[in-house]
Design a protein around this nucleic acid. Structure first.
Length: 341
DNA sequence: CGAGTCCAAGCTTCCCTCAT
DNA sequence: ATGAGGGAAGCTTGGACTCG
């Protein structure tokens, strides 16, 4: 259960009440002084929620001193001074919401010596995870020979049982074949869902419904866009280099659905989460988009492995300060194996 | 049975009304 | 006049459902 669900379903707070309290709690984790200021009335909930996105260790003392006993309006003025918004404002395309806080650590990342007991005695996977401390050892993928890899990870009793059941249904297959079959099936389903991939497509691009009425992108369009864009982010830097991201891809509406944009292939491109967010920032302003990543987990930040630094990328998008995700994109070290594509 | 479509979940915003 | 709270809107994902 996410914190949001807990607040709304268990504590019966309204969505907005929940939002305010979660925002304050998250801010207080970074800046504990906020709690005492809230308690003695120097700051109110709305003030903290507004201040949180721009509050840093360096500006905290000055900003909080200024904000004490101030109205929400005044607080917004402070915020605007610290983080000026772009002139352009309007509707926006929201990026995927944060899932990390509520998502349990992968079982493969748990410390075996501690979790072996927990996993064995827990009644469910989530219980087992809850009983375990922070992850220590991630799963290991070790190259053994050309085209051969060794994969080591810690499995839960649940997974172990499932593998045994699947093995029973695949007589003669070794463990690697069983896992490969399962992964292949999941991959096909997810790619069909996400990118409209199909073995025997029943509709082509011309037959797809592209009217602007619905937000739903039809499978033929998904398929066509994915093939046209080569399964890769389509953003190209000033230096002519194209972003090499192939993970966390999203369907970006050039003319947003919220503004009446249609869902034809011509209006849609593949874009990585980071660039999608950057374009949203360009369209709607940094101030509008910042809250979506202030938690640090709301953006699925791409691994540097998938990126080549796009020189002039900031210039391309007309942005000066674009946040952590983009900093990581532009400043990340590029492994020798990664080349521009 | 597979492909296509719809819709709820999750989170955050803006705009408005209510209570103080 | 002000902060708190309610409601609707917005966007993506994935589960559930429908159709051929």
């Amino acid at each position: 259960m996410s914190m949001f669900s807990y607040c709304t379903e268990r504590l019966h707070l309204s969505e907005h009440e929940a939002f305010l309290r979660i925002a304050v709690a998250r801010a207080a984790r970074k800046h504990p002084v906020l709690l005492s200021m809230l308690e003695d009335g120097r700051l109110h909930l709305s003030a903290i929620a507004k201040l949180a996105p721009v509050l840093t260790e360096s500006n905290r003392d000055e900003l909080l001193t200024q904000a004490m006993h101030k109205t929400k309006k005044k607080i917004l003025e402070f915020v605007a001074k610290v983080a000026p918004k772009a002139d352009d404002a309007g509707t926006m395309r929201k990026l995927p919401p944060p899932r990390e806080p509520s998502k349990p650590a992968a079982l493969g990342q748990l410390r075996p010596e501690v979790c072996s007991v927990a996993v064995a005695t827990a009644s469910s996977t989530s219980d087992a995870v809850a009983m375990c401390p922070a992850p220590v050892k991630p799963a290991v993928v070790e190259p053994l020979a050309p085209s051969r890899y060794g994969v080591h990870f810690t499995a839960s009793t649940e997974l172990h049982e499932k593998l045994e059941r699947l093995s029973d249904l695949m007589p003669g297959a070794d463990l690697a074949s069983v896992i490969e079959a399962a992964v292949t099936l999941k991959l096909e389903r997810l790619e069909a869902k996400r990118f409209g991939k199909a073995k025997k497509p029943s509709k082509n691009l011309e037959q797809a419904d592209t009217s602007p009425g619905s937000r739903y992108i039809s499978a033929p369009v998904k398929r066509g866009v994915y093939e046209r864009d080569g399964g890769q982010c389509t953003v190209v830097g000033k230096n002519g280099r194209r972003c090499t991201a192939r993970k966390d891809l999203e369907y970006h509406h050039h003319d947003p659905h919220g503004r009446g944009g249609n869902r034809s292939a011509a209006n849609i491109s593949l874009m990585c989460t980071t660039h999608n967010q950057l374009l949203a920032e360009r369209d709607f302003g940094k101030g509008v988009m910042d809250p979506y990543r202030r938690s640090g987990v709301s953006v699925s930040e791409p691994s540097p492995v998938y990126y080549v630094p796009a020189d002039g990328c900031c210039d391309l998008l007309g942005l000066d300060q674009v946040g952590r995700a983009h900093e990581r994109l532009c400043l990340a070290e590029v492994p020798a194996t990664a080349t521009s594509g």
